[in-house]
Design a protein around this nucleic acid. Sequence first.
DNA 1: CTGATGCATTGACAGGTGTCAATATTTAGA
DNA 2: TCTAAATATTGACACCTGTCAATGCATCAG
Lengths: 114, 114
Amino acid sequence: MSKQTATKVRSTVCCASVLAAPLDTTDAAELAGGFSALADPVRLRVLSIIAASPDGEVCVCDFVDPLRRSQPTVSHHLRVLSEAGLVQSERRGKWVWYSLNRARLSELRAAIDS
Amino acid sequence: MSKQTATKVRSTVCCASVLAAPLDTTDAAELAGGFSALADPVRLRVLSIIAASPDGEVCVCDFVDPLRRSQPTVSHHLRVLSEAGLVQSERRGKWVWYSLNRARLSELRAAIDS
DNA sequence: CTGATGCATTGACAGGTGTCAATATTTAGA
DNA sequence: TCTAAATATTGACACCTGTCAATGCATCAG
């Protein structure tokens, strides 16, 4: 089951922007969802750890030690990031590997671009 | 009293980045604070309204109608944005004018830049 | 000084969130 | 099929957050 949830259809032609034009409530809610996923230090470190990994993917067990959080807590954060579209997962054998969705990060970055 | 709170000293030379290097817990907490302020649709629309205003500043009373929130609620959101360093305020007579802190927005944008 | 206006603060409440222990699920290997 | 290992889910708890009504504070007009 790919936990690829809720990347709703954008209502604007390109992508929503906070600064370029008046933001409607739909776009505002969608963007707020994305930033909510970034609004936690543990999740930011999850993204950072993935970005710093040689292959661009990290399995769940390798987050537990550096994050100093329990395995269920790590799993929870990965789910939040996944549902926000910021990471994707792939099961290979007993392990699940997480990688960045840089396009989604770019969307959020662009949303606060002048 | 300038409500310019808590823009803590950055621990890195330039500015914290999620993707460029392993993120320490201090930087992660600081960035998460910034993204928390962006993690609400009402606040994103506040920023959008300011950005769309001709003079780049908006007084509190002019948020209430478009946001469809009570005046205390608007005031609450402006305080959150202010404490995150994303807006600044200036009292002129009976009115208080809010404007964007684009440098702070740039910091957050840069933090999720590749 | 008084009254009116713009904004901030307080208090209360419902709902959301991060955390962990316990448990379930999935997979590989024997 | 049985067991162990990796990950996900559930349940519980404390804390945080968005909201509004009521109230307080600051400023201006008269």
